[in-house]
């Protein structure tokens, strides 16, 4: 890539930093160039976030319909997958999946609820009271 073709598009990095890219100068030698961003990868990142938000809304709907417990919603809200949530809580993936059943979730001990609440950075009450309809509180 030539130095003068290094894109300087607006991106989420604005006001945080510019990124280093390697570009060729006029003499064809490599040097560092700074870029504010590139539309192509901004589109890709944006698409990843559209998907994240879709998953969060889908999870809220599942909770509202009584098919899943709030654990699923907060897992998606915090951008976690099973290995990550498992790492933070110390529960096996199998156990977490069970906790996502509303019937099992209702009977969870205070201790386990506290673990989830701490990992999700919410109170136990917030965890228990999430019903899928109060989603705006977390996504706005």
């Amino acid at each position: 890539m030539k130095k003068d073709s290094l894109p300087q598009d607006p991106s989420a990095l604005k006001n945080f930093t510019r990124e280093v890219c390697y570009v060729k100068d006029e003499d064809g030698k490599y040097e560092q160039g700074l870029s504010t961003g590139w539309n192509v990868k901004a589109d890709a990142l944006n698409e990843a976030w559209v998907e994240i938000n879709r998953r969060i809304e889908e999870a809220a709907k599942q909770v509202e319909l009584g098919k899943k417990s709030p654990v699923l919603f907060f897992m998606e809200l915090r951008l976690m997958d099973y290995p990550t949530l498992s790492g933070y809580t110390g529960f096996w993936k199998f156990t977490i999946k069970r906790h996502m059943k509303p019937s099992v979730f209702k009977k969870l001990s205070e201790k386990k609820l506290k673990i989830y609440a701490k990992v999700f950075k919410i109170s136990v009450d917030e965890l228990k009271s999430f019903d899928g309809r109060n989603i705006d509180r977390y996504t706005k």
Binding site: M1, L13, Y22, K41, D43, A44, L45, E47
Partner: peptide, 25 residues
């Protein structure tokens, strides 16, 4: 979405552009 993942792994901050190929050049 899968393609978006490729673009990000290839071009996002940290790669130096072109999937690290320019740093290697």
């Amino acid at each position: 979405l899968y393609l978006a993942q490729i673009v990000r792994m290839q071009e996002e901050i940290g790669t130096g552009g072109g999937g690290f190929r320019f740093i290697y050049a």
